[in-house]
Design a protein around this nucleic acid. Structure first.
Lengths: 143, 143
DNA sequence: GTAGACCTTGACCCTGGCGTCAAGGCCAGA
DNA sequence: TCTGGCCTTGACGCCAGGGTCAAGGTCTAC
């Protein structure tokens, strides 16, 4: 099959396939007129790549899986190199989740504190004229 | 103070400060010879920006905080626009963490399954000669 | 007066993963 | 024969957040 058909069947674009070829990730045979030619195995390789990318794997990280499949294994993750990528990815994900969770806590704390500070400001604003703090977009004092 | 000193005190670079100025995020006054001139307030604005960036805020997201500070408020998060950014960021973080956690589970499951499959392959390889499955980098059968 | 440290603007480079043109070749149907 | 649809390579753009020159101006110290 040609590049357009493969792209469509894999739910991607011809540009993407040419890009993968430029990386040596998914090389293509050529027909007499120079057109790229792919078969069902290439489709499987491509699906492996796209699946991993959906998981957030970088293209380079998909290479061991692709080569594993290409060397005749039934699954891309049948080879030790692929398992190693899985493990690295897990560690990466854990670290990322931990970092984001820590930030989430800090931002949440900041929000609560800032909201409390604003509530006090508003109370002071509606209360008998205290010191007129600099106001940003405080809702105008009630009627 | 001039740009070099401000950069050093804030732990960043002159290039970064010029970049922020080009975005209108941290404009600078100029001295007679065209040099940028900053004061302590600018340092506070810059610190606010850097702190938020460390939290993963994009530069545009820091703008409400900076403008809040510049309008005379004691803290960058004293204004409603800043609180809104906090809330959006929290939602974003929650979504991101949830997505990563789901992926983490799927990758973990894949790893376990692939490891089990490999263990079975190895068992078959060390057992009495079965069908010689295509081997990738299987450890050579023990002595 | 000159070396050296600072400053100026402008411009190109980098990362990843493509999108989007441009200019032209190949092939099938009417 | 012409139109339209596929294909080819090459090259630039984009996103953020700057890094890194280059070529030149300014100021201070010796």
């Amino acid at each position: 099959m040609r590049i357009g058909e493969l792209a469509e069947r894999a739910g991607t674009t011809t540009r993407t396939l040419r890009y993968y070829e430029s990386l040596g990730l998914l090389p293509a045979r050529r027909t007499g007129n120079g057109y790229r030619s792919y078969d069902e195995d290439d489709l499987r390789l491509l699906q492996q790549i796209r699946t991993l990318r959906d998981f957030g794997f970088e293209l380079e990280e998909t290479r061991p899986f692709v080569e594993c499949l290409r060397s005749g294994h039934p699954a891309g993750d049948s080879c030790p190199a692929s398992l190693e990528v899985y493990r690295r990815k897990l560690a990466e994900l854990d670290e990322c989740i931990a970092r984001l969770s820590a930030i989430r806590e800090r931002v949440g704390t900041q929000l609560v504190q800032a909201e409390r500070a604003r509530a006090e400001l508003e109370a002071a604003a509606t209360a008998p004229e205290g010191a007129p703090e600099p106001r940003c977009e405080l809702t105008p004092p009630g009627p």
